[in-house]
């Protein structure tokens, strides 16, 4: 390339403008870099947003066990759904399809997982609550979904879930579905 500076290319008119142009360009480059950072900032922002609003059933936990006032006048039907992510070979089931609970009472549910393969595996269950409005009222002191589950080849195990529904649950919600999807977390084993 030639040794002349770029501003000479464009004639006299722009020479006096060039410092100003460099300035503007620099600010715009900074803006672009900032937006690149913003793209990554969307990741924690998304998690915070989901936690605040309860979208996605992202339950924070485990919580400290607090004895609520038990609202015996209401009965909430809590349904359990289990799903295997594509390619996950485990047997994974809820041992009860549904339970009826009074808001405020602590309830234990059992889940069953079995690794039928000939290799040791690590699984991670990802929870979700429907309707999402109910998410913030679901409190768990213990859940197999809080940590990875390791199963040796052929090993099976009961996994507990201890939860309670906050009595402040809006009155129009009568049924809550808790869904768990099990993933092969071998690549992320801790």
């Amino acid at each position: 390339m030639g040794s002349h500076s770029p501003k000479e290319d464009v004639g006299k008119h722009s020479i006096k403008q060039a410092p100003k142009s460099g300035n503007t360009a620099f600010k715009l480059v900074l803006a672009a870099v900032a937006m690149f950072g913003f793209g990554f900032a969307l990741v924690p922002l998304y998690d915070v947003f989901c936690e605040i609003t309860g979208i996605n059933g992202k339950i924070t936990g485990p919580v400290e066990r607090v004895e609520h006032w038990v609202d015996t006048s209401r009965t909430i039907k809590v349904q359990f759904i289990t799903t295997n992510n594509a390619g996950m070979p485990w047997e994974f089931d809820a041992l009860q399809e549904q339970v009826k609970v009074h808001p405020g009472a602590w309830t234990q549910a059992e889940f069953w997982a079995l690794n039928p393969t000939k290799e040791d595996m690590v699984g991670q269950a990802v929870p979700s609550v429907s309707p999402s409005e109910a998410t913030e009222y679901v409190q768990k002191t213990e859940c197999f979904c809080f940590s990875q589950q390791s199963l040796k080849a052929g090993e099976g195990r009961n996994m507990p879930l201890i939860f309670s529904i906050d009595p402040r649950l809006p009155p129009h919600i009568r049924t809550i579905t808790m869904s768990y999807t099990i993933f092969d977390a071998g690549a992320f084993a801790e």
């Binding site: 770029p6 290319d9 464009v10 004639g11 008119h13 722009s14 403008q17 142009s21 503007t24 360009a25």
Partner: peptide, 8 residues
């Protein structure tokens, strides 16, 4: 303008 501001 005679050209774009940043020709290179």
């Amino acid at each position: 303008a005679p050209d774009m501001a940043l020709p290179r």
